[in-house]
Design a binder for these strands. Sequence first.
DNA 1: CGCTGTCCTGCGGGAACCCGCAGATCTTGC
DNA 2: GCAAGATCTGCGGGTTCCCGCAGGACAGCG
Lengths: 239, 239
Amino acid sequence: MDVLIVEDDALHRSFLQEAVRAALPECGHVVEAENGASGEVQARSARIENVVMDLQMHERNGIEAARTIWRERPDTKILFWSNYSDEAYVRGVARIVPEGATYGYVLKSASEERLKLALRSVFIESQCVIDREVRGIQQKSLGNSLGLSDVEYEILVDVALGLTDKAIAHRKHLSLRSVQNRLQQLYEKLGIYETSGHGNEGWFNLRTRAVAVALSRRVLNASAIERAERDLKEASGSH
Amino acid sequence: MDVLIVEDDALHRSFLQEAVRAALPECGHVVEAENGASGEVQARSARIENVVMDLQMHERNGIEAARTIWRERPDTKILFWSNYSDEAYVRGVARIVPEGATYGYVLKSASEERLKLALRSVFIESQCVIDREVRGIQQKSLGNSLGLSDVEYEILVDVALGLTDKAIAHRKHLSLRSVQNRLQQLYEKLGIYETSGHGNEGWFNLRTRAVAVALSRRVLNASAIERAERDLKEASGSH
DNA sequence: CGCTGTCCTGCGGGAACCCGCAGATCTTGC
DNA sequence: GCAAGATCTGCGGGTTCCCGCAGGACAGCG
């Protein structure tokens, strides 16, 4: 049994190396990669089935790497090990998990014991292990009371990319008015109206304000926008 | 001579602890704090003169902590130790350095030797040490050919906050048209017109697009927006 | 002094945005 | 089958944004 570690911070990498060796004495090679791109290559060439993956990395982040790895071998087991439980990351991961795949999501702030336990559970027992906190974010983002639905999230991304209503309508095969309806929904959910309603009418541009709020609530982050940007270019190129 | 370490990652913190002890054998206490807020408190109570500070932290980031520390004792020597050389961080640091203060900016990707050298240079020799790469960003952001000028940066932040032109005009004591002029400048500098000029007229909302581009170029980041948000609230409260 | 360059300002208009209203689907459940 | 709910759509309008044009203020320079 081999394990691939994808992590761009040297200290964390060696820490992981040790943790893996300690938690999984039965495992053979432990390969390391220091960013998403080389992680994909390693996973492919070494026929890796178990991956520990950081999310925030230079060059190519963990979500993209995981996506291509899973595209090639959907039965790969991936344990995400991240500093953040930003909704943008949680949602990004949830979006790419193949049907029936086993994965885990552990925060770096968790204890070493928790990490080791997760390593065994995911790689040996093929059991999904999601950190409490991350699970909380997931729940909240699914329960449509507070969190955004998928459609709302998608239109948020489109807006954050800087697309016009017309462009979004075209892209999503909707009428202009429908796009604007969804935008109103989005503004409602993000609470844009509260902050711009009272004494300060006309002080906020709802569209840009929504992006600002989403960013500071960690619903969006720069890497999610970049990912969307690439998808956009791809789609417009093929179309 | 005492040193305060402000760093929210446990591994990095113990690594720093060791590096400081090795590089500065003459130093006495080495205090640790795991976020900006407690860092401020420690610096105040322990009368610290030398600080090693991470930038990206939960709760309260390094720039804010450094600002309050320097506000209380401008002769404190601070060595920033960060993963990123984002323009937003570089500019944020440059904005808060008091006149004549000594500080350093070292990337976490640098070698341990470089870190130790920087520790000695800053704390013992009172010499400013700025990483090559960071220096490069500084230069580029100052040379107004590519980078944004201060006015352009400020209006970018205002736009990213979601303010309307009118609100910005009011805030900055300008006419509406002047704000729009500056916006045009900004769009020019960020190259918004290139991507929305050719075949795709009307596909981008310039205002939101500018924010997207600034984010992916790392001119802006979430923490810069949050900082601006707090400044805004403060200003509108006092006014 | 006049010229040039830079910045601020007002005016006007076309485009995009925000949204209430109302009708048209389509699903869900009794 | 029908009522209730959610979603999509067109229409109309008020507001904001984007920007060309033109004029004014001010600094630097020969």
